[in-house]
């Protein structure tokens, strides 16, 4: 399984990661190398094996639905590049 620069462009769009046009071929080569490694997993029969998402297979811990955090909006918003009146600013989404 190998990828082309065009495939990388599509994936980069899905991930919202800007890739320079001239780097597309290098990423395609690197990702193809990674995929080549991953083909090895196909040698294993994994029928009837439950996928493992956590090494200790625990049950998700629940807690009462209560407020535990204090509101620190102003402190958190000092980290953002652009805010106004307690809101985060982004380019216009709707005309």
């Amino acid at each position: 399984m190998s990828l082309l620069a065009d495939d990388v462009k599509k994936i980069a769009h899905l991930a919202r990661v800007g890739i320079n046009e001239e780097d597309g071929a290098t990423y395609a080569k690197d990702l193809s190398g990674m995929l080549e490694l991953m083909v090895q997993m196909g040698e294993l029969n994994t029928d009837n094996i439950t996928p493992m998402s956590h090494p200790l297979d625990p049950v998700q811990r629940l807690r009462p639905d209560e407020v535990t955090e204090t509101n620190q909006r102003d402190k958190f918003q000092t980290l953002a590049s652009q805010t106004e009146a307690g809101l985060y600013l982004v380019p216009k989404v709707l005309d």
Binding site: M38, T46, T50, S53
Partner: peptide, 10 residues
């Protein structure tokens, strides 16, 4: 597939 092979490794 990787999550399944992960279990086999564990």
């Amino acid at each position: 597939k990787a999550q399944k092979t992960r279990r086999l490794i564990a």
